[in-house]
Structures are given as structure tokens and as C-alpha cells.
Design a protein around this nucleic acid. Structure first.
Length: 422
DNA sequence: TCTGGGGTCCTAGGACCC
DNA sequence: TCTGGGGTCCTAGGACCC
């Protein structure tokens, strides 16, 4: 039987911020999403004030003022760098690591149960990450990913576990599932959780004991797999080779509403610049370009308009200039005056490997080697200093840029922001 | 007034073909 | 004029995740 450990950072974004602000550790702290829109990370002290994950800022404004909650705008450059450090540490400690998200990784411990108690191993991982990177984490261990996730939640929820739970024992699994809400099971979201409860399935244990065929009939194969995983049958492969991306999306809400086509052009062009950069990082060309935008769906008093449009390219490309020009044509085709737009984005999909797609049988245009070289040079310069070279259409004024009022410095990735020791 | 962004997987249904 | 069944491919939309 396989053995998996899930290592999950505690309040990751806040923990990353507090690494550089140890003076604030005892205060309630939260990190806000883009545009300072809602709370996406809270330390325990902020959680105890009742600030919920994803709560819009205007709803918690009172609590913030009353209790002096420290708010950080999200600083993804910082979090990505700290995440890299954690993952590198984990790779040193386990034979196989699958990075699941910026703050979570599965470790494959199969065969290691003979080397001593798994719980002791888990504790050594927690201690090492804490010592080497400074970030607190919890470990859950079991025979399937879904059970490892459950174990991890137990480790987070019950302090006396010391942040490590070995859930390989079936009796222990049942005990924990009995006191876990079905909505807290990995793979059960708000909708399905509600429907399950209406049908009398209210705990994780109820779900584990449900008939898989019945679940498949009333829900889906996805939930059926969850049932089997809760019973210790691994259905979700470990998968330590991340598959190639199938689509790239760059979208943002604006700091101020956009009403002019010229502003929207700037925004779309700058999103496409980012998307094309990601695409080249993947070593891919995109065959389909999509542009979309929408007004504020929360404000039903304003006239609403949202639309999206796609085009299939005759020649897949990763050239920023080509992609921007197509995106702008698409934008013109669906643009309407008289609306206040809140959000827009671009999507690239239908990817082809660069080295293969360049010799397609039906290529009409010869492959432009200069384009590839130009883009490579551009990426190199921008890697050294972000945003050094941009496309004129990205615009200069950019008054639609997102709001980030409490942005912390890039402590670890920009020389000028390096913390100073006095 | 103020409500994130970036992904994946699955399914139902339409278009089309024989 | 009547009008079956089976297959494939594609897309939109729903649900989930962090």
C-alpha cells in the first residue's frame, strides 16, 4: 500500500510576511487578494476574530479598525520565492515530492514505514522547514491523498497533535471521519456538500460508508473516487511529473472602472504581454486566443454587459506582437461604449510544442527565426529587471492598475528591498 | 463604494457523419 | 414522405481546488 504525506504551510501568505516583520507576530494579521478585495490568508489571531477566508474587505472593515488588524496587500513575488525555498527543503527530505500548490506538497513515503515511526519522520520535516526557512507547517500521513488531506486538517485543528497526524490505522481513520463534516472532505465543495446533507450524508464517515455506485449515479465519478479514497483505495495517482499546461489565463479586476476603449486596449495588451511570456516559458505556441471582459456583476443597478470571443490562429504563435495585435482585433469586435467595466482578461489555449509545430505540414507562412530570437532576448532582459522592456500599447498612464495599498517590499528578490540589520 | 486569480476535470448536448 | 442508431468531435457550463 502506498503511503503519502501532505505537507501544508500554516497561513502561508501571512507567515511569509511575518518572516520579515517579527514585531507583528502576536497581532491579528491578514493578507488581502488583488485590489485589496478580500481576505485570503489569516493568522490564528485574525481567525479568532471571526474573519472568514475570502471575506470581502468592506464586510470586515469594522473588525479591522476595532482590533487593529494588520493588513498586507498580496505580494506574490515574495510568496513564490519563499515557496521555492520550502519545496527545495522538502525535496531534500523525501524521495519523491509532488508540488500541489504554492503552499502544499505531497511526499511519497512508500517503503519508509520500515525506517521507524512515520509520526517521528513527520515531526522532523516540520522542524526542518521551520528551522531552515522559518515557515510553520503541518503534516498528515495516510494511504491515499484524500486521507492524507484529512489527516492534515486534523493536525491543523487539534493543537495537541503537535502538527503531525499519522492516519494509516483504519480505526483511527474512522474516528477522525466521524467527527469531520462532509463539507470538509477534499473534493466536496459547497454545492455537493449541501446536496449530500439533504440526502442524510453529513459526516465524512457517512460518505466513506456510502455505496459508490449510488454516489456515482446521483453525483459523479469524481465523487465516487473520493468515496474509495476515504476507504483507503488510492484512485488519485501520486504524479510527480506536472503535466504541461493546457491553458494560460491572465485576468485582473481594475483599480478603477474602465469606460474607454483606449484604456481597455492598454489593459488587454499588458495582460497579453504577461500571458505570452508564460507561454514561452512553457516552450509552447498557442493556437487559440480568447479575450473577455465584464461589468460589475455585484452591482445590478448598473447596465450589465459581458462578452468573450476566441480566434483560432492559422499559425500557432508565441510572439507577443502577433498575439497583442490579434487580441486587439478581438477586443474591437465585441467592444461597446456606455458601460463601466470591472474586469478583463486574455486566455491562450490549444498549445503546440514549439519545436514540433514549427514544421507543420500546412504552414502557410515560413517560420520567422528572428521572432524567436527577439522574444528570447526580450525575456532575458525582463528576467534581469522586471518590466524593463514593454510594448508601447501597454500604455503609460495605466490608471486601471490594481490597488495594492499595503504592499510589502520584495525582501528576497530585489536588491534594493533587502532587509537591513541595524 | 468596496466582492481575487489561475487552474483542472467531467458531462451534457449539438453538429456532423455513415 | 417517412425518419434509426451509433459514433466522433467540439464546446459551454458546472463543480472543484488553492
Amino acid at each position: 500500500m502506498p503511503i503519502y504525506a501532505l505537507c501544508d504551510m500554516n497561513s502561508f501568505y501571512v507567515s511569509a510576511e511575518l518572516l520579515f516583520r517579527p514585531d507583528l507576530v502576536d497581532k491579528p494579521c491578514i493578507v488581502l487578494s488583488n485590489n485589496d478585495g478580500c481576505a485570503v490568508a489569516r493568522n490564528p489571531s485574525a481567525k479568532s476574530l471571526g474573519i472568514k477566508m475570502g471575506a470581502p474587505r468592506f464586510e470586515i472593515e469594522e473588525v479591522i479598525q476595532e482590533h487593529g488588524v494588520i493588513t498586507f496587500s498580496s505580494n506574490y513575488t515574495l510568496y513564490a520565492d519563499i515557496s521555492n525555498r520550502v519545496m527545495t527543503t522538502l525535496e531534500r527530505l523525501a524521495p519523491s515530492v509532488f508540488i500541489y500548490s504554492i503552499d502544499e506538497a505531497f511526499l511519497d513515503l512508500s517503503g519508509m514505514e520500515n525506517l521507524g515511526p512515520l509520526e517521528r519522520y513527520g515531526r522532523s520535516v516540520v522542524d526542518t522547514v521551520r528551522r531552515d526557512v522559518g515557515i510553520p507547517c503541518c503534516i498528515g500521513i495516510s494511504n491515499t491523498k484524500t486521507l492524507a488531506k484529512l489527516a492534515n486538517q486534523g493536525a491543523k485543528k487539534y493543537p495537541k497533535t503537535g502538527g503531525v497526524v499519522d492516519l494509516t490505522d483504519p480505526q483511527r481513520q474512522r474516528r477522525l471521519m466521524a467527527i469531520t463534516d462532509v463539507g470538509d472532505v477534499w473534493g466536496v465543495g459547497r454545492r455537493i456538500g449541501k446536496r449530500l446533507k439533504e440526502l442524510g450524508v453529513s459526516s465524512a464517515l457517512d460518505l466513506a460508508d456510502a455505496n459508490p455506485a449510488w454516489i456515482r449515479k446521483h453525483f459523479s465519478v469524481v465523487l465516487e473516487r473520493t468515496v474509495r479514497e476515504l476507504n483507503g483505495i488510492a484512485c488519485i495517482p501520486f504524479d510527480d511529473t506536472p503535466p504541461n499546461k493546457k491553458q494560460i489565463v491572465v485576468s485582473r479586476s481594475f483599480g478603477q472602472r474602465i469606460t474607454k476603449l483606449s484604456d481597455m486596449r492598454q489593459a488587454i495588451s499588458s495582460y497579453m504581454t504577461k500571458a505570452a511570456e508564460k507561454l514561452r516559458n512553457e516552450g509552447m505556441n498557442a493556437g487559440v486566443v480568447t479575450v473577455f471582459f465584464r461589468t460589475n456583476v455585484f452591482n445590478q443597478n448598473q447596465p450589465q454587459y459581458s462578452n468573450s470571443v476566441s480566434r483560432t490562429l492559422t499559425q500557432p504563435s508565441s510572439d507577443t506582437r502577433v498575439l497583442i495585435s490579434i487580441a486587439n482585433e478581438l477586443l474591437s469586435s465585441i467592444w461597446k461604449n456606455g458601460y463601466a467595466f470591472m474586469k478583463a482578461g486574455v486566455m491562450l489555449s490549444d498549445f503546440y510544442d514549439k519545436s514540433i509545430s514549427q514544421q507543420g505540414l500546412f504552414d502557410i507562412e515560413p517560420v520567422d527565426g528572428r521572432s524567436t530570437k527577439l522574444m528570447a532576448t526580450l525575456d532575458k532582459i525582463n528576467r534581469q529587471k522586471k518590466g524593463q522592456l514593454t510594448f508601447a500599447r501597454d500604455g503609460i498612464s495605466q490608471n486601471w492598475q490594481m490597488k495594492r495599498e499595503n504592499l510589502s517590499p520584495c525582501y528576497t528578490t530585489r536588491w534594493s528591498d533587502l532587509p537591513k540589520v541595524r
